[in-house]
Design a binder for these strands. Structure first.
Lengths: 247, 247
DNA sequence: GAGTGGTCTAGACCACCGC
DNA sequence: CGGTGGTCTAGACCACTCG
């Protein structure tokens, strides 16, 4: 229970991050019970031969991830597992579904450049009518339709996305590999609604069935928006989980 | 533009927090343009006569709140305003509505102790059939019904909630003032659905109208769940906004 | 090369908690 | 009272970006 490994002083990975991972695997592999007190900052300094700054940075990371919580004057404690999972994290449809343990897929309906609408242009912070890359797909899980997804992308050289295959590849994976674009954060709006005729057909729904509308604006690491996505999910098969924290 | 105020060395408020607020009001009051570079860490150390630890802690706070972003080797920059607002923050219905600029209200339908159901008991981590305080309200904005809200509360002495007036007072305000209970974080699940007969009546809806179902489990500062709330919002009048971040 | 933020050290004092 | 986490100092070296 006490053997935890060591910090590799020759590694390019920062000490605090190595320590964070050591503690995370220690908590998870030993199934330490919720509300159990873990090592104090002082103990960790001594045990790993690092300064308190490093230890505190590691513990802050674990706290941010919901793995531990800290109480002034008492100590640090293992958080209940419910609070660990499902942190509101920026993911692609593909990653989201893989995390839920199902097999994602896609059927492309439309893949063209076209002039951007007023509302989307505003969200992308570009002039109206600018040509943007537009991709409409039916998203599948285990070969059943789950959502209708329309993405609008705007960045230098986005025309070359016309050549890509989006039935078998993740959009975000292509953006990262070929264009060096990494999504950093996103705003997402959720609204309950009723399926429109076209959606009932594409998603195998009945008229009047509920759907969840989701509109996302995605920003890169320089905080410039590069993507606006509009999604319609089947209401009976999709549930969104958020973790809210006190300010 | 350069006058920013000073850190009060005799105040009990930490330096880093004073500095964070000084910088925040400076950015907001001067309407500094997005992507403008702000002072470097070194400049701030000198200007305010504090160590770099304090400056970095203040800047980390501003970054967490979405007010600035930092790029290694380049500097710290003002973030675009869109990303500042609407951080996914744990709020009560009352606070939520006040932030949206409307007047919240409530009409109490049911306010009793009753044995807890199986599913709610599990979320509250208590034995089934335990008596819990149960409060059902129609929530109003500007005197129009917006949501049907059912709260289940479980903690020592929760029976005395029977005496409280929940038409004119916020539940969370009462919990904080009388019981020293502060919500710390919450899990929330969102699902699109169709109004049931009882809901159409209470919320002035037509059969078949869309609604948003929300189930919340709220945890206190010791990470123990004390409240489960089930909500049904009118789909046409409610939209949920989330901010997602890269892991 | 000069300036930036990222990491790290080795100390210090404090408020808070439980005993 | 001793132990805990919260705050703070005054340094240091590094990798990165830009001119």
């Amino acid at each position: 229970m006490e053997v935890l490994g060591e910090i590799d002083r020759s590694s390019p990975i920062p000490y605090y991050y190595q320590l964070q991972e050591i503690l995370q695997t220690w908590i998870e592999e030993n199934h330490i019970s919720p509300h159990t007190q873990i090592f104090s900052e002082g103990e960790l300094c001594e045990r790993f031969g690092v300064s308190r700054t490093v230890v505190r940075q590691a513990l802050l990371g674990l706290e941010r991830d919901g793995l531990i919580y800290r109480v002034k004057g008492r100590g640090s404690f293992v958080a209940p597992p419910k609070l660990r999972q499902q942190i509101t994290e920026l993911t692609s449809f593909t990653q989201d579904m893989q995390k839920r343990g199902v097999r994602p897929g896609a059927r492309v309906l439309y893949q063209e450049m076209h002039p951007v609408s007023e509302t989307v242009a505003q969200r992308l912070q570009i002039p109206p009518q600018t040509p943007v890359f537009c991709l409409e797909r039916v998203r599948l899980v285990n070969d059943q339709p789950l959502a209708l997804q329309t993405a609008h992308l705007s960045f230098d050289g986005c025309e070359s996305l016309l050549e890509e295959d989006f039935e078998n590849q993740s959009l975000y994976a292509i953006l990262a590999a070929r264009y060096g674009i990494t999504p950093f954060q996103a705003e997402q709006e959720y609204e309950a609604s009723i399926a429109r005729p076209r959606e009932t057909k594409l998603l195998n729904l009945q008229p009047g069935d509920p759907v969840m509308h989701i509109c996302r604006v995605t920003y890169d690491t320089d905080r410039h928006p590069f993507e606006v996505t509009q999604c319609v999910y089947r209401g009976d098969k999709y549930r969104f989980v958020a973790l809210l924290r006190k300010a």
